[in-house]
């Protein structure tokens, strides 16, 4: 028998097959974009240390009832007013912090019956077991927003010169940190920590009553 050359396989339909697979993966792909509010829970502490006494004026209480209504500092408040109320409280600067320094950067009204210093100001939220999760998230969002607005303001004051074109300075700083997560930028980290230190996030959550 004469040696026959193997006939060439027709590859013309290869593209069709590949297209078919491509379209399948195109359709099934969901580029996920999960976002949310990042919070830290307090660790469980079994020690019986006496909790430090917090002055009433340094405590900003937010209670969410089972019908979703707000009770802020024992007064009824609308959701839309919560953000400003929290900012006013944090930014009051009526006294001194633990080290005896008064808040030089606070722009609040320095009332004697509101918080002494952002260092000392604590927001405490409490909710009922029946509170809708949506309301709970709205409150969280407003309170985080209050902190973010103040941090944004301090970042603007201190570091605007490094980010002349940024829309929001603190956001720009965090984005830069995110972008360079593999090569640590000490200066940037220091700046972010400085802003966080000026406006520390002291947001505590009480456990709902068992009933």
């Amino acid at each position: 028998m004469a040696k026959r050359a193997a006939p060439e396989v027709n590859a013309g339909s290869m593209a069709d097959i590949a297209f078919l697979l491509l379209i399948f993966f195109l359709v099934t792909t969901t580029i996920e974009k999960d976002k949310g509010l990042l919070r830290s829970l307090p660790p469980i502490d079994d020690s019986v240390v006496e909790p430090p006494i917090i002055k009433q004026k340094n405590l900003f209480t937010v209670q969410i009832g089972r019908d979703g209504r707000l009770l802020v500092e024992d007064e009824i408040m609308e959701m839309k007013d919560l953000r400003q109320a929290a900012i006013d409280f944090l930014d009051n600067g009526g006294g001194t912090n633990a080290a005896g320094e008064s808040c030089t950067y606070c722009k609040g009204e320095r009332l004697s019956d509101s918080s002494d210093h952002p260092d000392k100001a604590i927001i405490s939220m409490k909710h009922d077991r029946e509170t809708p999760y949506e309301q709970y998230m709205d409150v969280q969002n407003e309170l985080v927003a209050a902190y973010n607005i103040l941090r944004e303001r301090e970042a603007e004051r201190l570091y605007r010169k490094y980010y002349p074109n940024a829309d929001k300075v603190f956001t720009a700083m965090l984005e830069e940190k995110e972008k360079n997560q593999f090569n640590k930028d000490e200066v940037l980290n220091e700046r972010i920590d400085a802003v966080k230190k000026l406006i520390p996030m002291k947001l505590s959550e009480a456990e709902p009553d068992k009933n």
């Binding site: 999960d34 976002k35 949310g36 509010l37 990042l38 919070r39 830290s40 829970l41 307090p42 660790p43 469980i44 969410i64 909710h127 009922d128 077991r129 029946e130 509170t131 809708p132 999760y133 949506e134 309301q135 709970y136 998230m137 969280q140 969002n141 959550e205 456990e207 709902p208």
Partner: peptide, 30 residues
């Protein structure tokens, strides 16, 4: 968590997470 859920369920979960020492929580939202 669905927005219609009551927040008690969430605080139960958080309590369990604290026991597991998994303290970083993200409330995922739109």
């Amino acid at each position: 968590v669905d927005k219609e859920t009551n927040a008690g369920l969430v605080s139960d979960i958080k309590q369990e997470l604290r026991k597991e020492n998994a303290l970083k929580v993200m409330y995922i939202a739109n």
